[in-house]
Nucleic acid binder design. Sequence first.
DNA 1: CGTCTTTGACCCGCGC
DNA 2: GCGCGGGTCAAAGACG
Length: 394
Amino acid sequence: MEGEVSVKEFLEVEERPSHTYDNNTGSPQRNDEETSINKSTVGFNFLSLSLNNSEKAQGNQGQQLTQAGLLRIKLEEAKKENQNLRARLNHITHQYTTLQNHPFLAMKKQQQSSPAPNYLDLLKKEDAIVTEKPTMPLEGDQINNYNHTTREGAKSIADQAHEPSTRKARVSIRARSDYFLMGDGCQWRKYGQKIAKGNPCPRAYYRCSMGTACPVRKQVQRCAKDDTVLITTYEGNHNHPLPPPARPMACTTSAALSMFLSGSITSTTPPIGSTKLLNLGLLPSLSGSVSTGLATFSPSPSCPTITLDLTLPSNDNSLHFQRDFSLDHSQPFPFPLHGCAQQIVGMNSYSKPPTAITPEKNLCLTDLVGAAIAKDPSFKAACVAAISSFTGAT
DNA sequence: CGTCTTTGACCCGCGC
DNA sequence: GCGCGGGTCAAAGACG
């Protein structure tokens, strides 16, 4: 952090009039980058001379000329330092951007080692549309289900923009968080709040404010039974390009929805009520209580909702399904969780007071769903269909 | 001054 | 038809 301040201060040197410089400073050393930064900052402090020193110099014209020369040299040095620091800043910015895109790059790299990974080419061009059968290392039923899921999934998502019945389909995500909002990479504008029946916690209504007239809305509410559980419900598709941090969430919700809407998932166990269930299999490496994901589908004719429960304990093996999304513990995590830089996107009066943020208590939604994406090939494929749907709509 | 949040009012669908 | 509850609107206030 100190480095950032130094850079900031140093970059201001160019803005200062040259006549304020002093000749009492030594030339900044450049043994290494860090030394350079620190010394330049120190140099700048010295260079910000007082008027008193300038007045003293007026007594000797020859000395003034010498000073002018020194000042020019120092100015040139300062400019060089400035260029170096700008280059370093650009490098850091590039690294930051690269890290943000790491999940998708890792998926791409992983698939390049498998035969004909044409679906991943879509990630290169965001405006691509899924039209071919993606080939992935699937086995048995996964292949059949995958084909169905991807084609129908893409169709379902695309249809959502035209069919009133499916446009209302929702994806609900349950996750533990001490804060009222969890970062998903998007910008939201609150437009309402209600106290729902049976839950003392208010339900907040948000609208996506990243695009003009974006139809996406979300509801945020704490669970009545466990106020540490935050329930976030998404509805609709974005009509604008999404920033990298928002893509995992957007594609996951749409992919999950498309998989269920396509009807390609069936339960091998008697349905609980009218619910279909799918074990998504989150990573065991995820910290805290989140180690297993469970999706619940409520096929209400007017408003089908899929719930991704990221709060269930890992030993919950009470449900088994036709499609096996179980974890392959021998395989390393294909990409690292990209952190919670955008974890807290806002707090309102219903937020809990700021407490020590730990990964356990404040898992980023994009991290959680990113893990789900990474572990399941067909889920990834559905995500690609979703991404294509999103970007193709713009 | 512009943007965002808050909050009461209003609308609408659904069940009785 | 009526009441209830969920969802949305919009004016007022807060905030930077």
